[in-house]
Computed example of a mutant assay.
Amino acid sequence: MLLARLRGLLRPWAGPLRRRLGTVRRWRWRLRYLRDGVEGIAAELRSTVRDHAELLAAFGADVGRGVSIHGPLYIVNADGDFSKLRIGDRVHLGTGVLIDLADRVTIEDEATLSMRCSIVTHLDVGPGPLRERRPREQGPVRIGRGAYLGLGATVLHGVTIGEGATVGAHALVDRDVAPGATVLAPRARAAGGGAGG
């Protein structure tokens, strides 16, 4: 209660102070990039409370207006910067979204990726014996305008989610989804003869 009152008293000064500190923050980001490369900036995205859109744009992503990102945001396989990422206007990314930038990722205007969604643009089994049978695959991912991905949905390499499509919670999407279509993950069922089976 006391802390809430204190925050209310400080609020009129918070905006101007935040703008002044913004310059310091941007310099800190540049120094972090010089020291740790794009992995350092990816670490910033995992730990910052706000400014995800500004941070992405500062390091090469094309980020639209009115974007809402709730951290942490996980970016992996960025090659020097975030230039393979395009986020349209009024996009919402929930907490814990993972974006693999081995290839291009486009999230069009007004799309929503709920918490813990994953966008995976490549498959690589590593240096082991499977490599001969399962060579590396990769491809861009596009999430269409106004599409909705439910909690924990995963979209694999080369897939396009059509405009206005809905992907249910925990669905694994390995092929294109038509505009306006709905795809769902299987529901849990009781195993062999148990209660409710």
Rank of each mutant, 00 (worst) to 15 (best):
R19E: 14
N77P: 01
I143E: 01
G64K: 02
N77Q: 11
V159T: 04
L10Y: 08
A178I: 05
A181K: 06
V120W: 03
L156E: 02
I119N: 01
L130D: 11
G94L: 06
L98V: 12
G88D: 06
T48I: 15
G71A: 11
G22W: 12
T160V: 14
I75T: 00
S47T: 15
E110P: 00
V49W: 10
G80M: 07
A191W: 11
A178N: 04
E137R: 15
G158Y: 06
A78M: 08
D100K: 02
G150H: 03
G66L: 03
R145S: 04
R30T: 08
I41M: 07
R20K: 09
D51N: 13
L101T: 01
R86K: 14
A78W: 02
R7V: 10
G196W: 05
A102G: 07
V49G: 03
P135I: 09
A147M: 11
L85C: 03
G193L: 12
L17D: 00
E44Q: 10
A185N: 09
D51P: 00
N77M: 04
I69M: 02
I107D: 03
H92Y: 15
V38M: 10
P129D: 13
L101E: 02
R18L: 12
E44T: 08
A111I: 03
G162T: 08
L2V: 13
T95E: 13
S83K: 13
G40F: 05
L93V: 04
L55I: 15
R50K: 11
A57F: 07
A57Q: 13
V67G: 01
T182L: 07
L73T: 05
K84H: 11
G22R: 10
R5L: 13
E137S: 13
L2A: 13
P72M: 05
G40Q: 09
G128Y: 06
E54I: 02
L10T: 05
L156V: 05
G193Q: 10
H170G: 01
A153R: 01
R28Y: 12
R25E: 14
V125A: 11
R20A: 15
A61S: 07
T95Q: 14
E163Y: 08
G168L: 06
T166N: 02
S118M: 12
T106Q: 09
R175L: 00
W13P: 00
L172A: 12
L101A: 06
R86F: 01
R19M: 09
F82Y: 14
R142Q: 12
I69L: 08
H70W: 13
G146F: 01
T160R: 15
W13I: 11
A111K: 02
R11W: 10
T106H: 06
R136T: 11
T121S: 05
